[in-house]
Design a binder for these strands. Sequence first.
DNA 1: AATCCGACACGCT
DNA 2: AGCGTGTCGGATT
Length: 963
Amino acid sequence: MTPHEFIKKWSNSKLKERSAAQEHFLDLCRILNEPTPAEVDPSGESYGFEVGATTTTGGRGFADVFKRDHFGWEYKGTHSNLDAAFAQLQRYAVALDNPPLLIVSDIGTTIRIHTNWTNSVSKKYVIPIVDLEDAEKRQWLKWAFSEPDLLRPKKTRQELTEEVAGEFAELAKSLRSRGHKPEEVAHFINRLVFCMFAEDVKLLPERMFTKMIERALDDPAEFEAFARTLFLAMKDGGRVGFEKVAWFNGGLFNDDLVFALTKDELKIIHRAAVQYWGDIDPSILGTLFERGLDPDKRSQLGAHYTDRDKIMMIINPVIVEPLTEEWEAAKGEIVGLLLKAEEAEMNAKAAGGRASSSRRGRATTARNEAQAVLDRYLQRLADYRVLDPACGSGNFLYLALRALKDLEHRAQVEAEALGLPRRFPSIGPEVVKGIEINPYAAELARVSVWVGEIQWMLKNGFAASMEPVLKPLETIECRDALIGPDGSEAEWPKADAIVGNPPFLGDRLMVGRLGEDESEAIRTVFAGRLPRSSDLVCYWFEKASAALGAHRTDRFGFVATNSIRGGSNRKSIEKAMSICPLATAWSDEEWMVDGAAVRVSLLCFARGNAPILLLNGRAVAVINADLTGDGIDLTKALKLSSNRGVCVHGSKKIGSFDIDGEEARHLLQSPVNPNGRPNSDVLAPLWNGADIVRRPGDRWIIDFGMEMKEADAAVFERPFALVVDRVKPDRLTNRNPVLVENWWLHGGPRPAMRNTLPFLTRSIATPALAKHRLFVFVPKPVLADSQLMVVLRDDDTTFGILHSWFHEIWSLRMGTSLEDRPRYTPTTTFETFPFPESLTPDVPTAAYADNPHAIAIAAAAARLNELRENWLNPPDLVRREPEVVPGFPDRVLPVDDKAAAILKKRTLTNLYNDRPAWLDNVHKALDAAVAAAYGWPADLSDDEILARLFALNQERAAAQKGD
DNA sequence: AATCCGACACGCT
DNA sequence: AGCGTGTCGGATT
């Protein structure tokens, strides 16, 4: 069949729906050269006619034609309403697993393809039957059959929202510059956005808002009056001119606040108003308007934007999956009861008389029971409440509401297919509860939830409720979620599930950000329940797990920074785990939000015994409190006495004691001081993390040691004067009296380090925070700054063990991180690490001088160090020059500019980023030597290494108990 | 007096 | 102006 023949046959066809639809569709397959349903899928389940029709009911299917993951297709008789057909298809889309395309056709005149991707803007392709000779239009249809993705609108809803709302930042700025309060500006803009949405989804009369703006453009002075009239009409329902306006409520329109606008501002609004707002993603509105607010106030708002995927990673396990399971169980029961009813009815027909009527009665009972099972499930959904106790602009609540509505809808549609009557959706915005401290964010949350409700209704083919369009959402409260007005613990409403993204604020930043009173109030209320050094998020975990313990909720899931896994924050996880299983967790996820440089963990707890534990998307037998799950709970590793006091933090200066090389050399070459001592007594090169992993920065430090008296320090004339000048003023204002009293000394004296160093030829150091876990030797006159963790040993063997994969993997697991860069924490990493037998840090180096394992490790370590040093400073690129006074390491200088440029790139971070073969080889040799010292094979898997190290840790810890 | 941390902070390209 | 990657000193214990 050719397109021409098709048009001739079908154009203006008067055939009625059922009789013609299949033939029409098959003809279409022929002109498109697409296989027919019968050719592809004889079972008709994933591609067929009347999919979803059951023999039980003999009713119609969910769609006239269905192709899984492609389309649902609905026919209507010629000239009947395609919109009605589309609405019907929308209502059943969920039962068809939401095909990406919904296609409607009236056989004789038009085929319409509606896109149905959840996260893209919707698009409509209209194909008049008479245009089927047009290859492009046929191509659209062909894509629908074979590659629906090619019809996907390029723009995501987020992009659309950013685009249409982006300009409001400009408007907000402009209004603020005229002295309006940021919150009022936000409130006003919120309204404008809602009006544009309402107009585009036809909740306001056609183009009413746009026309209002257009009129005001001609006469900006009138805008205030126009807008006030409109807002007032929306507040109570009423008229603007001749046109009726629906009643909007919900707090958004409870006053008539309007600003006078300039022509330029009106132009911005007009540009936005002519866009299509029906598909906006309310979950992104929060960020956009936050951006429009005063940038300094942004972080105080706490209304951070969580992207949809992350939210669903919590909503799915906490809300959707358990309720889906409940539905599957209920559905199974319903199917069983209906089968029973059917059987009884058949028997009734076969029998007769009294037997017949009793069987008929049994059938009715079974049917009623089936209805009751359905009603119970629907009631369960209607009663289900979700709480977000830090709801911000309402993103979690918006998606939770949609999820619950989807669940209700799916149950209704599937029950209908089984032959039970279907009712109007009953779940609305009242099922989500929120607590939010910022009034503006709380209002945005209410709007988001309502926009979500209206969008859902329209997308699924229902009319939005109109009387009023918005109802006040008292379930979203504006208050503190932790502390009540009287200073006691805040109450949370009862809810079946608790979800959210509580604010992230490190414990040390709490006082600075929340104020001393607020921080103290929180810590007092939770005293004895959580350590005072818990991050702010931990209190949300604590309250939620308490709610679960008190049977006030069944499940909860939160987003936290990934630092929840370590430090004292871990206590809050441990505490929650003691009350209920941690059922689903994601330990370390990227965070894509602008300006929020964090990585996050997601944790979902559930009542009862969760049959399957999911960690990072994989089933595991256990999830440990540090969000690992490979069977070894390394959080149980203990400190070993042999390692105590060996790994210490570098000196913490607290104040600008550091000077650059030029200044230092000037001081070094100055005449001796009145006490007869040179400045070199109180000067040292300073190394920090960056000096090790990048190029050394030639920084020096003035250091009067641990306990020099002020009067003695003052005799070092120039250095002391510099400290008086640069350090003293700040130090005198410090909160810590010790730092004030000893203002000329460093803040962290590190006696262990300073007392031990004289007995060593050098020390070993690793940057506390760096991309790669590196160890280097630090020559003696160099002072290690606080960013370096210093191991007070000078032998190659210890260096080699620390730099081996055994200790590296241990440190990666036992330490913490800043985002994705590992952090070395001596107490949990070094002090728990079981060194090979008799090579432990409490053994004097001399004691293993003849130990062949120690010698082998030392040789490999020395080789590593030598090759690395040669790569960092190749003899042809550098010249070594003695320092201006004796007692300090030679200076390493580039021979010329060209060499300098090359050397700039020669850093340890870069070296380990590339990890050339030679480096890999020396590390392999080192690992082999260390493996031999443990008496282990060289090719153990990482898990096996950790398991053995952990076993060794436990063994040694048990043995030392007697000490 | 020692520890750990950063809804970060800052230098580099 | 974004990317790559570690400062610094406060506050807690």
